[in-house]
């Protein structure tokens, strides 16, 4: 049963359809084992944003306060898209490489252990 309601065949209004975001889609980005940032960030972005723009412009805003940000070696960074291993194409639009509305991207930098080596 999709809901226990007194109204027969009750259907809820989906609040977060992509159409409600004025041409943007939501993309969440999280840095694994780096808890200086309490949660993954949510970014509203045009679906045509390239991965390079996401990484070099959008993500900078959220993550660059971290003392290890400048040490990241993007060539060896591993990515997960919605829980699956993912190899980003830098100059391809997000939507054209399967990063759709409300997708979660996680990146892993195993050589960087966080502030004081404590996953901060």
């Amino acid at each position: 049963m999709p809901v226990r309601a007194i109204t027969p065949d009750y259907v809820g209004e989906v609040k977060d359809l992509q159409a409600n975001f004025h041409g943007n889609q939501l993309v969440y980005v999280g840095w694994d084992h780096h808890l200086m940032f309490c949660a993954a960030f949510a970014f509203p972005l045009p679906p045509t944003t390239t991965f390079r723009q996401l990484r070099d412009e959008v993500m900078v805003e959220g993550f660059s306060a971290h003392p290890e940000w400048k040490e990241i070696d993007w060539d060896s960074t591993q990515w997960l898209l919605n829980g699956e291993p993912f190899i980003p194409q830098l100059d391809v639009a997000l939507i054209d490489q399967g990063i759709d509305h409300k997708s979660l991207l996680r990146f892993q930098t195993p050589e960087l252990k966080g502030f004081m080596g404590a996953a901060v």
Partner: peptide, 27 residues
Amino acid sequence: YYRPRWELAKQMEAEGNRFYTKALPQL
């Protein structure tokens, strides 16, 4: 796990750069 976060916060505060996160979180 937690004291190191506060050490980082103290260090940033001492540098005149009290840490406020910039982007909005996933809920």
